[in-house]
C-alpha cells in the first residue's frame, strides 16, 4: 500500500497497532472457540413448528429435564406465547446441561440473566445450547425477543439446586 500512496510513518505505526489489537481479540475468540469449544448455538436442525404438540421430542409429556442414557443432562422446552414450558424446571449446579428448545408459534428469545444461557427460538428450527450453571438459586428465564402484546409477561423459572440436593433427589426424570 505504501508504495502506491504516501502513508505517513505515524499512520503506518498506528495501523500496525490496530492490526495487532484486532489480532489479539480474534486470537482470544478462536482460542476459546477451538480449544474450549465455546460456541453460540449453530447446529442447523429443522422442525415443523405447527405440529410440535402432535408427538415426538417436543410433545407435552416429553418436556422437562431428564438424564440421557449416557448420563448427560438434557432439558427439552417449548417456547410459546407466553411462556417457556414447563414453566418451572430444576437443574443442578455445576453439571453441563443441554437445552433443546423449539417454538410453537412465533419468534422468541430465551435468556437466563447472569448466565450465558441465551438463544433465539426461531419457528421451524430447533435451538440447541449447552451450559453449566455455576451458582444455585432461583433464576428467571426471560423471553428477550418481541413476540406480541404479552411479551412482557413471557417468563419461566429455572431453579438451580446444589449438587448435593440434586444427588439426593435422584433419579431425576421428567419434570
Amino acid at each position: 500500500m505504501s508504495n502506491l500512496i504516501p502513508v505517513h510513518p505515524l499512520e503506518k505505526r498506528w495501523i500496525y497497532v490496530v492490526l495487532g489489537v484486532i489480532a489479539l481479540f480474534l486470537g482470544a475468540i478462536f482460542y476459546t472457540a477451538l480449544v474450549h469449544q465455546v460456541h453460540p448455538p449453530g447446529a442447523i436442525e429443522t422442525i415443523d413448528s405447527a405440529t410440535l404438540h402432535l408427538g415426538g421430542e417436543f410433545a407435552e409429556d416429553k418436556l422437562g429435564v431428564r438424564t440421557d442414557a449416557d448420563g448427560h443432562l438434557r432439558a427439552t422446552l417449548v417456547a410459546a406465547r407466553y411462556g417457556f414450558y414447563p414453566r418451572e424446571i430444576r437443574v443442578p449446579e455445576g453439571l453441563p446441561i443441554t437445552f433443546r428448545i423449539a417454538s410453537a408459534d412465533v419468534l422468541h428469545g430465551m435468556h437466563v440473566p447472569m448466565t450465558n444461557l441465551d438463544t433465539m427460538v426461531v419457528p421451524g428450527y430447533v435451538s440447541t445450547v449447552t451450559t453449566t450453571f455455576p451458582k444455585p438459586g432461583e433464576y428467571p428465564m426471560l423471553c428477550n425477543e418481541y413476540c406480541g402484546m404479552g411479551h412482557d409477561h413471557m417468563w419461566s423459572k429455572v431453579i438451580v439446586v446444589s449438587r448435593e440436593s440434586w444427588k439426593a433427589a435422584a433419579p431425576q426424570t421428567g419434570r
Binding site: V18, I22, H39, P41, G42, A43, I44, V122, Y125
Partner: peptide, 22 residues
C-alpha cells in the same frame, strides 16, 4: 444466537466484524 445458521459461517462473519473496525 440463531439456530438456522452454522458455527463456521458465524465465525467467518465474526472475523470480518473485527476487521471493519480498521
Amino acid at each position: 444466537m440463531d439456530p438456522q445458521q452454522g458455527k463456521g459461517f458465524k465465525l467467518a462473519h465474526g472475523v470480518g466484524t473485527f476487521l471493519v473496525a480498521l
